[in-house]
């Protein structure tokens, strides 16, 4: 039973990973990453890491992916400048060919090394299961005793990253064209009020704003 579940979860995870790399629409990329993460959570459950699986689904597939979806929606995934480079006019062609070759070579090498190894631990089913392995209680005890320092550093890092993201993504005056401010500073002028552009015939009568 666990073998069947393992193969289903592994195939879904690898298919999701392929979807992330191959699909052209960034929305579909994010959705297939969600698929991949849920399958990976199933693998974690098979490895009896219940708390990590729950955190994976709640934090990763829930929170982080929502962030991604919002940014893809904001940037406007499919139609502009994100998908036009499939032709790769100025993209080095060598990278497009050698990249997948490199990946396949590394994957084959790693698989040979892992499956052909003589290490007993890897080919076994793991340590005998004791009750309470991977529960929140055990993880929390580890975090607050043995790994207290990494825990605190991680929380500090999260704070720094949140502030950094706010600083990076805030609206800055002067860096970008600010249309609303522009329109307020130059009120609409009625036609036939004698601007130079109207006299020279550069602006059609009635749309005094267009020539500036």
């Amino acid at each position: 039973m666990s073998a069947v579940l393992f193969f289903i979860a592994a195939i879904v995870a690898i298919a999701g990973a392929f979807g992330v790399v191959m699909l052209r629409n960034p929305f579909y990329n994010v959705l297939s990453l969600v698929c991949h993460l849920v399958a990976l959570a199933a693998l974690f459950l098979l490895l009896r890491a219940e708390f990590v699986a729950a955190a994976q689904v709640v934090v990763y597939a829930g929170a982080v992916m929502v962030l991604y979806v919002f940014v893809v929606a904001y940037v406007g995934g499919a139609d502009e400048s994100v998908t036009h480079f499939t032709g790769g006019a100025d993209r080095p062609g060598a990278l497009r060919v050698l990249g997948p070759l490199f990946g396949v070579a590394v994957a084959v090498e790693l698989c040979i090394a892992l499956l052909g190894t003589a290490l007993k631990g890897i080919s076994g089913k793991g340590a005998p299961y004791v009750l309470g392995f991977g529960t929140p209680k055990q993880i929390g005890t580890e975090f607050l005793t043995t790994y207290l320092f990494p825990f605190e550093v991680a929380s500090l890092l999260l704070l720094v990253a949140a502030i950094g993201a706010v600083v990076l993504a805030r609206r800055r005056r002067g860096l970008e064209p600010d249309e609303s401010l522009d329109a307020r500073l130059r009120p609409a002028r009625p036609a036939y009020t004698g601007t130079m552009a109207e006299v020279a015939g550069l602006v059609a009568h009635g749309d005094g704003e267009a020539g500036r």
Binding site: S2, A17, V106
Partner: peptide, 24 residues
């Protein structure tokens, strides 16, 4: 399942991710 199979899945996913970083 033996632990090695999980490691194989992990290696394959890692390589797919590396190729994606290189190509996209």
């Amino acid at each position: 399942m033996a632990i090695g199979w999980y490691l194989v899945v992990s290696a394959i996913i890692f390589c797919i991710g590396a190729v994606g970083v290189l190509v996209r």
